[in-house]
Design a protein around this nucleic acid. Structure first.
Lengths: 339, 339
DNA sequence: TTGAAAGCGCTAACAT
DNA sequence: ATGTTAGCGCTTTCAA
């Protein structure tokens, strides 16, 4: 059998509680003993058994990540995984691991209830897309350490963290205004697409502050597909005067938009500047490469992880945050010759 | 405090071992008792504590996933996550969860050693890109249940599972030959890019069997970037006779290739058919949409999960598998008017 | 078919 | 600063 704390204690000529204290860096142990014990652990190749530690301490050092991991999610939503990686990065530094649990909006609260009851983890990280009202109720009732990745679609007293998409919209419009564009248009997702809604709101704000209010006829909303992007851009190009800039709520719409604009023989950015959000692989591979307001989703995961670590230490902690600093990346779709 | 097995036993008027046996579906318990106990568990909202179960049974019901989760990995390698999701899907059905652990080739064997020593999981799933010789040695020495996702880049006695990229290459060439193409070219990644190497080998095989051997001057290998794809395609288009079909080892190369071909005023697929591998989002969004030999990476994850479950039950199990059935998706880049 | 009891390998409160 | 000891909540063997 594997070597246990008992064997180490015997070999080091101490009690097992001393060894335990060395493992857990308890202040009361003298450096001399600690060093000796560590040496013995090394020699015997001792590693404390994780589940025994969990059991005895009542801490799992695990965080469960709840999300809908259905087919093609990795392609459809790379952001989810980039956040997950950020989460892992932050947690791993403190000896925590992330546990994956696939679910959906209807099943998530039962799953969370079970995970909490079985004490499988010390905290929950929940992707906003699976958040349900029963789950929100459960979390605020139990005050179990948690964070939602993305802004909840409904009002509730739970902790979440999200990119400030309104501010992203402001940045996009400011960039275009600074380039001298005066007739900015917006192509977005539907009403339920909160990300798009927030970005539009930001664009409105940014333009208003430049005294260039966004004209309603320059706003088109639809499904987030390439074809729909092209169709809406087509509508836009039927207007007079033509817009001299188009902000697309996401890369897929932008791809369709670029195609439609080029089909009409208009030059980007000479006749119309185009920009979007997120430095998706599409952005740089598009022709011309797209200027984007980039958002650091990985950093969002990191912040979520840090928040969870503090929430585990001191419960009752609440957070409702928009995370920091979107980042403007200027490419050839708004400035000739760039990127 | 939470309700324990003791409380349930008391309430049900049985011993705790009976309750334990009910939890674990032990055959010796009569249906009557089992039902009664289950009812009590339900009423008391009892859930066994995971870490106590792990501790007592010695089974964690966890699988650790070892991979390099560095910045942008979700964008650069969506396949990794689709596999991960497949893995989760297969494991979750048997009550297993996936635990994420980020690492790299240099650190992976130390990490694995620790994870195994601490008994943090019952099996390891390792992304091929982080596999190292020391890790391979560790795995074959300890015979710890494991599977590598992707074919190891070196010979070793460990279990792995991968897409049959050679066969993918065969399918691609057969498709083009069946369309009457006679001068097939290949754009691939470097020598170290095993996926590209295998696909090229398959293309060679497929063409040879059609008595249309692949001409060496029609083969260009380079970095997998859009620009390099365009550059290599440019070289190809300087040859006479022109190839009438180009197989690109991946979507990024294909994107550059398409751009270069169109820049010369050649029509796709009329003058040159183009195809690639993997039904990446790029494939369908490209103009024209790309024909691809698709590979089901999620299914690969599912198979890995199933293999691990059996390896956990009966150790010493070995596997060296190419997973099944790539799937031809025909679009407009090879057949006019398709997709 | 059920129950009693001996751990599983740690942690942590308390005593020294 | 170190040691003694009582659990933590289950599983599992063995006896009944």
């Amino acid at each position: 059998m594997a070597v246990t704390i008992r064997d180490v204690a015997k070999a080091a000529g101490t009690s097992i509680s001393t060894v335990s204290k060395v493992i857990n860096r308890h202040y009361s142990i003298s450096e001399a003993t600690a060093e000796r014990v560590r040496q013995v652990m090394e020699e015997m190749n001792y590693h404390p058994m994780a589940s025994a530690q969990s059991f005895a301490s009542g801490m799992t050092r695990k965080v469960a990540f709840l999300a809908a991991l259905q087919r093609d999610v990795a392609f459809d939503n790379p952001h989810m995984f980039e956040m997950l990686c950020g989460l892992e990065e932050a947690l791993q530094k403190r000896g925590y691991a992330v546990m994956l649990r696939s679910t959906d909006t209807t099943a998530v609260s039962a799953l969370a209830e079970e995970v909490i009851a079985r004490r499988e983890c010390d905290a929950l990280a929940i992707h906003a897309s699976v958040l349900s009202r029963p789950l929100a109720a459960l979390l605020s009732r139990t005050r179990f350490p948690h964070v939602v990745l993305g802004q909840p679609g409904f009002a509730c007293q739970i902790s979440w963290i999200d990119i400030n998409n309104v501010y992203c919209g402001v940045l996009a419009s400011e960039h275009l205004v600074s380039l001298g564009r005066r007739r900015v248009a917006f192509l977005g997702g539907g009403e339920h697409d909160l990300i798009s809604v927030h970005r539009l709101e930001g664009v409105r704000q940014g333009l208003r502050e430049a005294d260039l209010p966004l004209e309603e006829r320059y706003i088109w909303l639809g499904e987030s597909t390439r074809d729909e992007g092209a169709r809406m851009a087509g509508q836009l190009l039927g207007l007079r005067p033509l817009p001299d800039a188009i902000i697309c709520a996401n890369n897929v719409l932008a791809l369709g938009c670029v195609a439609a604009v080029q089909r009409r023989g208009l030059r980007i950015p000479h006749d119309i500047a185009i920009m979007t959000f997120d430095d998706h692989p599409f952005s740089a591979l598009c022709d011309p490469p797209l200027s984007v307001v980039d958002i650091d989703v990985r950093e969002m995961g990191v912040q979520a992880g840090k928040f969870l670590l503090s929430a585990i230490k001191k419960p009752n902690l609440q957070s409702q945050t928009h995370t920091a600093t979107p980042n403007l990346i200027v490419r050839a779709s708004t400035v000739e010759g760039q990127g």
